[in-house]
Design a protein around this nucleic acid. Structure first.
Lengths: 243, 243
DNA sequence: ACCTGAACACCGTTCAAGT
DNA sequence: ACCTGAACACCGTTCAAGT
């Protein structure tokens, strides 16, 4: 085996926290969470571990910074404080996060963890704020904003994470197998379950075939939006359905 | 330091997969996910790593088995296929998972991962089934059962995980500080945010003080139930509010 | 101030060897 | 069939030393 393409022996640009975080994101994207090691990082950056520790406190902080960078970019993608109605704004943010997690599957567990430390972690706050603003604009009274926002955020992160994992599983089967092969395998497994124990799963197994991931995801968002409208909004203030 | 209480040198009971999984759960409960190592397990069980590998394929399988055991117990707690109306049944399952995750905080990331491999992991299937059955009983048409069930499940797991992490953070502050101290710290952090960037968070900061975790969690479940009723149920078939 | 790289403690896993 | 325990490859982190 000849050595594959490798960074120049001596790095030209000076090291910086920003460059390290960027390298971490690249590594996470190409090799997954398990692939982010200080060894791989030092090779990628043509340096030693001590140099990285000079800019970054430890691996946890590095993961948090990588998460932060990617999510910030995703949330900034849609023009901030943009034009649409509150429901449209919520759908746009949801799709932005959905796509970001789809592109960077390692984000899902990271966000779930980050998000649970609500005290002051910046990513969690940014996401809550971005979803909470349109919830407020919807007319939800102060007493219900918390519940509504968290219901949306938890659904968004959970569903997006599952989608990303599914797609990663399809890719993991390698070429030859495509999406359909994977779906078939899932359907077969589900239909082999004991009908006495799993009536529900068996009932929906067939429908998974013509299942559009993005559409299904948005249907869930709309379901929760409908719940917000039904529970939290004074009658007459309809939330606005899809155009 | 004198050696603390330790298992007898020679174990009396024979090793078994069941005993190993049980020891793993105990270790996870007492020392968290990072505390589950083959070294600690080996000491706890008075054996060598090879013995454990005889019964269990690797660490991943052990974690999955531990998750499975705890969740199965939690889902079995409420009398299976119990009496209540479908919404009550959904609330009961939700609370059962909420409590299980509260007692075993390591479950949250584990379930999030497990759940994303929807193909055939037993825990994920069990949870989907347990939530899906009452969703179906609610009268949701087949086309909407998938969306409704996943919206519920993702919310339940996400919200329960966040709750567990928050409570773990409170415990982490040690005695002296209690829940109030932690909440105060969060409120202070939130109120120190730039009002231009974080109008929403600052708006709800005060309300976190008299926030009942369980009630808030159930309010989210009810919100989604209301959405299901509004979107999926033919008019006239109301979902049934709280008694 | 910023970087080097050897060294440390610890981890999951394997495997020849025992009973 | 079931268990032992030394050994292996690898990991995050530290730190004396250099510039």
């Amino acid at each position: 085996m000849t050595p594959r393409t490798r960074r120049p022996e001596r790095r030209t640009e000076a090291l910086s926290r920003e460059r390290i975080v960027q390298a971490a994101v690249e590594l996470l994207d190409s090799t997954g969470e398990a692939g982010l090691t200080f060894r791989a990082l030092t090779e990628h950056l043509a340096t030693g571990p001590g140099a990285i520790y000079w800019h970054v406190k430890n691996k946890g902080e590095l993961l948090a910074a990588a998460t932060d960078a990617v999510v910030a970019a995703a949330l900034a993608a849609g023009p901030a404080g943009s034009a649409g109605s509150p429901p449209d704004e919520i759908r746009a943010v949801a799709l932005g996060l959905f796509d970001a997690i789809d592109e960077h599957p390692w984000l899902a567990p990271q966000l779930a963890t980050q998000f649970s430390r609500s005290s002051g972690e910046s990513v969690a706050l940014r996401i809550m704020e971005r979803v909470g603003q349109p919830v407020r604009a919807l007319g939800v009274p102060a007493s219900g904003q918390f519940t509504a926002t968290f219901a949306l955020v938890h659904y968004i992160l959970g569903a997006a994470g599952q989608n990303a994992a599914n797609r990663a599983a399809v890719r993991g089967l390698g070429p030859g197998f495509e999406r359909d092969g994977y779906i078939d395998a899932v359907v077969t497994t589900w239909e082999a379950l004991d009908p006495g124990d799993y009536p529900f799963i068996r009932g929906i197994a067939g429908r998974v075939r013509d299942h559009d991931d993005r559409a299904e995801f948005l249907a869930g968002v709309d379901l929760i939006l409908a719940g917000i409208t039904a529970v939290q909004l004074p009658a007459g203030r309809a939330g606005g359905g899809r155009p």
